[in-house]
Design a protein around this nucleic acid. Sequence first.
DNA 1: AAAATTAGCGTACACTTGTACGCTAAATCT
DNA 2: AGATTTAGCGTACAAGTGTACGCTAATTTT
Lengths: 202, 202
Amino acid sequence: MAGARALQKEKTRQAIIDAALMHLSAEHSFASMSLREVAREAGIAPTSFYRHFNDMEELGLTLVDESGLTLRELMRKARQRIEKNGSVINTSVETFMEFVERNPNIFRLLLRERSGTSVKFREAVAREINHFKDELTEYLMAESDYSHEYAYTLAEGLVTLVFNAGAEALDLNPIEREKLKERTILQLRFITFGAAAAKEKA
Amino acid sequence: MAGARALQKEKTRQAIIDAALMHLSAEHSFASMSLREVAREAGIAPTSFYRHFNDMEELGLTLVDESGLTLRELMRKARQRIEKNGSVINTSVETFMEFVERNPNIFRLLLRERSGTSVKFREAVAREINHFKDELTEYLMAESDYSHEYAYTLAEGLVTLVFNAGAEALDLNPIEREKLKERTILQLRFITFGAAAAKEKA
DNA sequence: AAAATTAGCGTACACTTGTACGCTAAATCT
DNA sequence: AGATTTAGCGTACAAGTGTACGCTAATTTT
């Protein structure tokens, strides 16, 4: 048996998740979103929501996890591109900016809940960002035999700069966005170069 | 005439502003704050709120401006300390972290509304942060005769790193906070050093 | 075939929200 | 002194919220 009931349940669950994601925008945050709104959009009765999530918070955490998946895909894509292209910094910035342009609302979700009012949300988002930092740390250690701490510090700086540039890009037009991208690339070069140079001296 | 009426009005206005600021916390954002809540806290009738602000948004923008003042004071203090102490990077990070520790809720306000749902809010916060970038840009130009664009790119990177460290510090205990501070200082050294070195090469 | 489980619905309730409207008392203006 | 302005209040209302509760119809288990 395929589980006709379980199947339908999963379908509705996805409808709820999709409805919530659709409703995210520049003007509408997850925090300002009501249970009834989501239910309406998903085409179910408000009370049916509880068959799938205890809370709006529980739904929110699910959304953050889903966004994490998209983000992980992005990382994979970036790695592939780097292998073929070579330029780590340019490709990383390029790939990340592409993600932000294509999934502005998913990015907005992470961006907002990162400093939101729920501890669990903040932790969940931090966890996602840490994936980047950790992966980058390992890459840097392999590439330039930095100590773990040294590499982590550098990785943290790099991720911060890229992530922040993504946030700023959200409100910019294509021309300004391009300029921002160039500045970001330069900043990343500075910090990696500085890290390499500072290590020499030590 | 001192304007007994105008005086009382100003007093109530301040009561509203203070009430709003008091209510800000890790668990309570300005966005999730209702007009009635503020009025209650300020000790006035909900409808009296309108004698002072058209909107919660208008109050919010006022708060951001007030926070800007506090921030400006911070900058002044940092400048003074730098003159006496000498170490630009250490003193800047030290001063900023002190501000975050002492005014976590004001900082949270800026942090959250920076990515909030109101365009005006986002612009207002961006304006405040730009003060830092601009001031730092001028300093860097005077110090190391960089071009304006070059200095701005560097300044932007520095401000991003410091501001972001402040955000992360909010959720950390003193020990982790100290480690974060050290990493941040290192990151700032990397990027300034890298910028100086990259310029040499050009 | 009978019994048990459950996704989804509708009704209902107690709250909270923003704000329109008209009043009052005190300060200000003429 | 009389007229005007206005900060603040209370009442009132329509709209939205989360969620408790009991029902139904269909799937799943026995």
